[in-house]
């Protein structure tokens, strides 16, 4: 289980784009680094991330080792009703994480 955060505005308006910000706690190892003993540190990155609102996928991303550690992603989305923002991600070892937040739609 991996840690993450998702942040949305306290209230959002129907039909108006708002920003969703996601932060995932992950080292995003490139596979090019070496530890103190000179051993290569194996690659380990979050490679897939998706955001669903009310069960409908509104955003997804494929990430690589070029993303900074603890990947941060912000994007916009429009909703036409209330729902829950659910973010799900997985790394190349199959480790998964989810985080969700309710949406206050006016």
């Amino acid at each position: 289980m991996m840690l993450g955060r998702v942040q949305v505005p306290t209230t959002v308006r129907k039909g108006e784009p708002f920003e969703v910000r996601i932060l995932v706690q992950h080292p995003m190892e490139t596979g090019y680094r070496r530890d103190l003993n000179g051993q290569a540190i194996p690659m380990n990155v979050v490679d897939k991330l998706a955001c669903r609102i009310g069960g409908r996928e509104v955003f997804s991303a494929e990430l690589g080792s070029g993303m900074a550690a603890n990947p941060y992603i912000a994007f916009y989305v429009v909703v036409d009703g209330p729902g829950t923002v659910e973010v799900e991600w997985s790394d190349d070892r199959g480790e998964r994480g989810t985080v969700s937040t309710p949406l206050n739609v006016t």
Partner: peptide, 19 residues
């Protein structure tokens, strides 16, 4: 990285941090 958007995005804008 590749980011997938759609009409539900409302605005074609993303922010992130890269290496």
């Amino acid at each position: 990285a590749t980011f997938h958007l759609g009409p539900q995005s409302g605005r074609a804008e993303i922010a992130t941090r890269v290496r």
